[in-house]
């Protein structure tokens, strides 16, 4: 047994303390959101008793005609989900195709493409938002649901590409060549050999794209007109006019939060089982 040096023990204690503080500071707002979602108070300045009405209001809004702010929130929620689902599907398909193309380039060109790909990731959202606003007005697109959708596809693709590329790098290129020799066309070779082997990367990319889209504020804010609101831009507007605020948004957030956690646990379980099976096969 090796004796731990002083430096190591200090590092361990400091690391542990800072890790605990990190978890406290990032979970504090989550705790508040949870409490507010079951707090029987519209303005939210204090604790006024336990209620589940914000949750039931999301499910059966017609039962709460007195919540006048609710319809706008529900609209924003359905618009958010619609853009998130559509942009995730489009960005995942395009991003996977682009990643396969990038992977086929020479090393030098591949790095160039990855740099290009990283522009929307590194650029501050506000710059991306303004750039897209400029493109849309150059093309004389009216700011609407569709401009938001294009914007979300634009900032999601790079994440899909970055999730898929490492999986492609690990793939043996001879497998694809073999499929062509065995009579596959180029496209069906991609579908039958490449796609199944990079499926985990595609799934990770899609999940990332979805969470980026559902949570986006800045880029949506700059690329949406007055009639399109997602949950974030709705919230930004109503925070300035508190009469239109409803705590049901806390409940919405908790629900989305729980759904994402369940999806992640599910995916992890599937992956672990798969790894175990392939591990056993190797033995």
């Amino acid at each position: 047994m090796k004796k731990q040096s002083l430096f190591h023990s200090i590092l361990k204690v400091v690391g542990l303390l800072l890790t605990i503080s990190t978890f406290i500071i990032i979970y504090l707002p989550i705790l508040i959101i949870l409490i507010m979602s079951v707090n029987d108070s519209t303005r939210g300045y204090g604790w006024e008793g336990f209620t589940l009405k914000w949750y039931t209001a999301l499910i059966v809004p017609s039962a709460y005609p007195e919540m006048t702010a609710l319809p706008n929130l529900l609209n924003a929620i359905s618009d958010t989900l619609l853009v998130a689902i559509l942009s995730t599907i489009i960005a995942t398909v395009l991003g996977t195709i682009f990643a396969i193309g990038i992977n086929a380039l020479s090393r030098k060109n591949r790095i160039r493409m990855v740099v290009l790909n990283n522009i929307p990731i590194v650029n501050p959202d506000i710059v991306t938002g303004i750039s897209l606003l400029i493109v849309f007005s150059l093309l004389s697109f009216t700011l609407s649901f569709y401009t938001v959708l294009i914007a979300h596809v634009f900032f999601s693709i790079p994440y899909v590409v970055l999730s898929v590329l490492p999986k492609l790098k690990k793939l043996d290129p001879n497998m694809y060549e073999a499929s062509l020799d065995l009579g596959c066309s180029r496209a069906s070779g991609v579908g039958k050999v490449i796609i199944p082997n990079i499926a985990t990367g595609i799934l990770a990319g899609a999940l990332l794209a979805f969470t980026m889209s559902i949570d986006d504020f800045v880029i949506t804010y700059f690329t949406s007109g007055d009639e399109y609101l997602n949950v974030s831009t709705w919230l930004y507007t109503v925070l300035k006019h508190p009469r239109h605020f409803t705590p049901a948004v806390y409940a919405y957030n908790v629900i989305i939060f729980l759904i994402t956690i369940i999806i992640i646990i599910f995916i992890n379980n599937v992956r672990e089982r798969k790894e175990k099976i392939s591990h056993e096969k190797n033995i």
Binding site: P29, I30, D215, F217, Y250
Partner: peptide, 12 residues
Amino acid sequence: PLWSNMLLRITA
């Protein structure tokens, strides 16, 4: 925690 809406975390 990153899956919670950023503006809502700011509100919190």
